[in-house]
Amino acid sequence: MKKKVFAVVCSLAMMLSLAACGSGEPAPAAQSQEAAAPAASAIDMSGVTLKSEGVLTVGSEIGYPPFEDFADDGTTPIGYDIDIATAVAEKLGLKVNFINTAWDGIFAGIGVNYDVACSAVTITPERQETMLFSTPYINNYQAVVLLADDEKQINSFMDLDGMTIALQKETTSDILMSDYKSTGSIDIQIMANEKITSCFTQLQNGEVDAVVVDSTVADGYMASSDAFRIAYEDQEEAEQFGIAIGLDNAPLQAAINQALKELEAEGFIQETYNYWFGAAAE
């Protein structure tokens, strides 16, 4: 609930700042990161349209660590996606402003409430019909997480048969596990949650036997807690995360891709990955 209120406050702040400043210098909204006003960039920004001049407005479902979460102060967004989006904006010579938004309807807000969505979005053919994607900035697998002291061997998803699992609703994990269940491949009980954090609490409390989750998220949890272990990673079907951009904003897509390319070349992406997911995980 808190987050919804927060999102409302943020969008109100946005609207006010837009209304108050018109075409002038946009006032920093509640959540804008005070990235140092960057020097003129080398990347071609012609034809790019932005919601707010000089600012890259980014929609993100903040509450999916380590991709995006609030810092301990409860208002500063931090995480892998946050760092990437901030660096991209810097490369483009823009300030960055994060809009916290619910996962439901996050794509509907692209080009309406924000310019891009950077929120651990998997690139899928279906989605590519309704939005543009940047080049992938991270690879992701589906992982099975167990309690650290659970010595069960998991060699494939088939080994989950008979177990009770938790996963985040409407994610790749959900779609995949629901398919395993509905086709009758395995017999499992699924607890689908709004938040991934609920899944891990359920695992810790003993309500469920395992959590199925993006490997990147699992890595992040392993880095910060030794209560869990990754029992299996499905290497076969890798997914890739990209920044989602409005269909009508191809120039922005090109600019972001150029920025990502430069960041990759500078080693920034690898560095950021190591910082958030641990060097060993790669």
Binding site: G162, T164, D187, Q189, M191, T201, Q204, N205, G206, E207, V208
Partner: peptide, 21 residues
């Protein structure tokens, strides 16, 4: 359950697949 160290599904027999619900 976090504080008292129990799980709600343990109120029902482990053999019951629907214990979690």
């Amino acid at each position: 359950p976090g504080i008292f160290g129990f799980a709600w599904r343990d109120l029902f027999p482990a053999s019951d697949a629907e214990a979690v619900y």
